[in-house]
Amino acid sequence: MPVSIQFRQALGKLVLPALILVACGVILLGKADRGLIEKLRMNTADLLAPAYGLVAWPQEKLRWVSGNLQDIRNLEAENIRLRAENVSLRHWYDVAAALADENATLKANLHWIPDNAPTFVSGRVVRDTSGLYARAVLLALNPDTAVRKGGIALDGAGLVGRVTEVGRRSARVLLITDSSSRLPVTLESSHAAAIMAGDNSALPRIIFYPQDNVPIEGERVVTNGEIESLPAGLPVGHVHYLRPGQPVVVPAADLDHVDMLRVFDYEDSVVPPDAPGRVPLPAGGGAMPLPAHPDQGLHG
């Protein structure tokens, strides 16, 4: 259909405002239907995961080689340090062995119910999806592995984060440093419960700690069994004061270079029984029997 030049020009001028309106629509859609956008992104990430793996491989090799070279340079100093450390570790090994023995004996006497071992899968981190607003990594997974939303990701040293989105070949792990991450923790020496709140910086803050029991510099921070999918006692890091009155957690896990992660499934580890939350009333519908009124009062 032939259209006049004027009409075509007018149409051309309308394209950009229309597209800007569509962009606003996309923003609203992303807010209203989070699932759709997430699905789209995870599908794309799934498609690109092998390519990202290819990019990550030479980097890892390079880091390995450079690490090796550095090791060779520091060999002498390292050896001296390791010997000293070995002596100290040998001592701690004896202590640990004695304590393990004692613990086993005590548990045997107590009819201790052993914890069931959690299942886990390991995966390679193919991409750091941290942006201006989020701290997260993308994990490549075998399509057969059953990783669920809410899985707990650890590296060799401590807690890294939680699985928030699961695709067919990849899963997104929200790091503990993300600003939307809030985890209940226990401070090991002061035995205080607190919340570790990420704020997109490298050191998550400690908030809601008891004011009469403040965190001690350097004490270990472990998870606390308050939420079902996260068991108590996983190592998180240690307390550090940036300035007086501002305690933060220095994560034990190396969150700058996460390359291997284990994702644990604690989903049905400890489920509290259904509790009505009150004392059942005695049968018969009567009120609780009160203790007999002492008649021998002042007037009696």
Binding site: I20, A23, C24, G25, V26, I27, L28, L29, G30, K31, I37, R41, T129, G131, L132, Y133, A134, A136, R172
Partner: peptide, 9 residues
């Protein structure tokens, strides 16, 4: 992985 549509706008 940011908020959807913001880069586009």
């Amino acid at each position: 992985f940011g908020p959807a549509g913001v880069m586009l706008l």
